[in-house]
Design a protein around this nucleic acid. Structure first.
Lengths: 337, 337
DNA sequence: TTGTAGGCGTTATCAG
DNA sequence: CTGATAACGCCTACAA
């Protein structure tokens, strides 16, 4: 009645038996070899169809000694603008290169480590590993890639032995601060993202550095949590700062909150205060392109990580790529009045 | 000088030779079998460490006849709120169940089909397939899952032979329309999402159905493209409609645009016009929880798709699961004044 | 044009 | 407690 529980998969040998040829001939047909008589080939194809033959990935890759697959470990979930676009970039590059992505989410583990991830992923169908980091991990410096398993880390930090690719978070701060100072602002205030986030911390540090280098007064930073609501709160405080004419906000949701709070407090944007965000995540959302922002090309970051990992083993000094962001100037910035 | 290009991977046999035991004993150590003398086990572990042994996924799954992996085909990119959360739900469920995700992006192909995707993925390390559909495909009805490869389709539509899981888009429209009519509105206007999107089209159709069932006048729908800018345009037109006191907008970005346009035109929200969006994608973004919206649990959709696919082959009628959305009531809706 | 042999790395099974 | 054998499905190399 019910179909038999077909545990074993249909193999070349099964097809061969059905078609009355050898397994080798079937293999040749599968690969479109011209060295098979058309009639034989036809018979084989029919048998394949009838039996529902599918090539075995396991057997092929055992034979080939490689998978044409790269492992991707997302260390803290895939949600979030940056992660999503990185994953998309990696997936597209992989597909174009005829590779497949073996995806693992480490978000549920509370303190994931690189070595732990490498150990777990070493037993998966992967020719190389990409680690996407958005927070710090305990064994970052100490990690060494397993032999024969090239590893690329997506992070703005350099690693002693593994190539890395990341957004130039400090450069982003430098760009924004430089532009606002060039417009004539005395200094630039900062609203940081959630503590513990590498992006938030690096942008914060870069902002300090940039102001320091220019010999400008460094105001106290305000810590947000990436949400618009936390931006609003920060904006309310900034509205009471007398010297505040320019604010650099670590993402666009908070920047939107800052703008709204400033306006609610009677300060005009950009006439009284300039505001710049990061990520350019709201350009499709806000009806009017309102908030200046630094756009990062996270798809490109993902793509480069993939390309680096399939390029294979590295000798000597690993490469550290920082992809710069682009400041999109919009109506929320102006010279101080 | 340079390390030898280690093409062949380190096998159990290599470790066995190094430790002076048989491959079988090494295998036992790898699996923590108690039937190995502690001293032998220690010797084996040292050899493994020294040689950098990693188990071969290919050999293991060839032996086992299965992969503990499910294939996920994203038919049109992974970007977008819904896709991202679905992928996250699938990835989490997979990781928890000790499975791995084999991800393929079909976004670059111009007219992907289910059968094409199944053919390509049939040769990958997968025990089952999940197809995430956000647009229509030509062979939806005609598709039949390959033997031994259970397939679950993520879509709001039923399929003759494959189980499906999806958001209840029509129910979403029904809920919103019902609520707005219950508040006393004469009818409900609609701003639809990009044409060709299954979600947009189903919400539109559901809106028509719901109004029709209530015997209420069905106004002409306005077609947007998901962006806030298109919402603003729609809102400008709606502000000129005399009978328009309630608008159901197919996502939150457009809803934001509608609200802004209405206000710019001098109409108050919600006193003059109520506005409801879908996706609840801006609750972390807008400083004040302003826009009522229907929240879908796309993580749950992903999770159920995964669970269904690992449950294995189906007999008889396939199940079609529609996960309902929840209307989050916020200050953008009120009875007509 | 077609077929046979061998081995990729692992593990269940049975023998010692 | 340890080892030998065979088989999973495929493909390169060689033979007929």
């Amino acid at each position: 009645m019910a179909e038999r529980n077909q545990r074993r998969s249909v193999s070349l040998a099964d097809v061969a038996r059905e078609a009355g040829v050898s397994a080798q001939t079937v293999s040749r047909v599968v690969h479109g070899s011209s060295a098979v008589q058309p009639r034989t080939a036809e018979r084989v194809r029919e048998a394949m169809e009838r039996l529902g033959y599918r090539p075995s990935f396991a057997a092929r890759s055992l034979r080939a000694g490689r998978y044409r697959a790269v492992g991707l470990a997302m260390f803290s979930g895939i949600t979030g603008t940056a992660n999503m676009y990185r994953l998309d970039g990696i997936a597209r590059a992989a597909t174009e290169a005829g590779h497949v992505l073996t995806l693992v989410e480490l978000g549920s583990e509370k303190r994931p480590t690189l070595s732990g991830a490498a150990e777990a992923m070493g037993a998966l169908p992967v020719d190389g590993l990409i680690f996407n980091l958005t927070r710090r991990v305990a064994d970052f410096e100490a990690y060494r890639a397993p032999a024969g398993l090239p590893t690329v880390i997506v992070t703005p930090f350099a690693h002693p032995t593994c190539p890395t690719v990341g957004n130039d978070e400090r450069g982003c701060s430098r760009t924004v601060v430089g532009r606002l100072l060039a417009l004539g602002h005395e200094t630039v205030f900062h609203v940081a993202g959630a503590s513990g986030s590498v992006a938030a911390d690096e942008r914060l540090e870069g902002w300090r550095e940039a102001l320091g280098e220019e010999g400008v007064d460094v105001p106290e930073a305000i810590r947000g949590d990436w949400t618009g609501a936390s931006g609003y709160e920060a904006g309310s405080r900034l509205a009471r700062e007398p010297g505040c004419t320019a604010v650099y906000v670590s993402n666009d949701a908070m920047a939107l909150g800052v703008v709204e709070a400033l306006r609610d407090a009677g300060r005009r944007v950009p006439e009284d205060v300039s505001v710049v965000g990061v990520d350019d995540s709201l350009s499709q959302v806000l009806p009017h392109d309102a908030i200046a922002s630094v756009r990062f090309d996270n798809r490109a970051v993902g793509r480069r990580a993939f390309e680096r990992v399939v390029a294979g083993a590295f000798d000597g000094e690993p490469e550290h790529v920082l992809v710069p962001g682009t400041l999109i100037e919009r109506a929320s910035i102006a010279p101080p009045s």
